[in-house]
Amino acid sequence: MPDQAPPEWMEVGRVAGTYGVRGWLRIQPYTTKSETILDYQPWRVRQRSGAVKTPTVLEAQVHGKGLIVRIAECEVREEAEHWTGGTIECPISALPALPAGEYYWGELLGLMVETVEGVVLGPVHRLLETGANDVLVVRGGDRERLIPYIPAVVRGIDKDARRMIVDWDPDF
């Protein structure tokens, strides 16, 4: 796989469904506090079809563990249904800077994972929050590996080269 440029946009949530009959959307943010996702503008929504649209958020409120939002592009439930299942992305430049050595989950997605011996395991497909530590889900070939995201295992990350080095047995 050739080196890729670091992404300029990062996934920060998803459109979980519709809310009511006036075109509101239920949003599942990937942020620690639900309302924080509203600070990361502009949004673009990558729909299941692959189309990318840029919504204009008019109103929002916390609803359960997520948010409900009204966007200018939806006035009725039927219009909102077309947005359901889409992923919400924002420019990485809209996110607060992190201290050196810390990364947003979205920055890790797609990084090519290889062992300290140079064995390529595959790209980071997603991350899991387990309570004790986060876990990288790495898919390569016909396997899926669950690799703990801890300093003893993750030895280096090069965002520019889109690569992560891990101390991990490739047979595990």
Score class of each variant (00 low, 15 high):
Ala5Tyr: 10
Ala5Met: 12
Pro6Met: 12
Glu8Val: 13
Glu8Tyr: 11
Glu8Phe: 10
Glu8Asp: 13
Trp9Cys: 08
Glu11Arg: 10
Gly13Val: 04
Thr18Gly: 01
Val21Ala: 04
Val21Ile: 02
Trp24Asn: 00
Leu25Val: 05
Arg26Ile: 02
Ile27Val: 09
Gln28Pro: 10
Gln28Arg: 08
Pro29His: 06
Pro29Thr: 07
Tyr30Pro: 07
Thr31Phe: 05
Lys33His: 15
Ser34Gly: 13
Thr36Leu: 12
Thr36Asn: 13
Thr36Ala: 14
Ile37Cys: 12
Asp39Lys: 13
Tyr40Gly: 14
Gln41Ser: 12
Gln41Trp: 14
Gln41Val: 14
Trp43Leu: 11
Trp43Val: 10
Arg44Pro: 15
Val45His: 06
Gln47Asp: 14
Arg48Asn: 15
Ser49Pro: 15
Lys53Cys: 05
Thr54Lys: 11
Pro55Arg: 04
Thr56Ile: 12
Val57Ile: 15
Val57Tyr: 02
Leu58Val: 06
Glu59Met: 04
Glu59Gly: 03
Ala60Cys: 07
Ala60Arg: 03
Gln61Thr: 05
Gln61Phe: 03
Gln61Lys: 05
Val62Glu: 06
Val62Cys: 06
Gly64His: 07
Gly64Phe: 04
Lys65Val: 10
Lys65Ala: 12
Gly66Met: 00
Gly66Pro: 08
Leu67Ser: 02
Leu67Trp: 00
Ile68Arg: 12
Ile68Tyr: 05
Ile71Glu: 03
Glu75Ile: 00
Glu78Asp: 07
Glu81Arg: 00
Thr84Ile: 07
Thr84Gly: 07
Thr87Tyr: 10
Glu89Leu: 05
Ala94Asn: 10
Pro96Arg: 10
Pro96Gly: 13
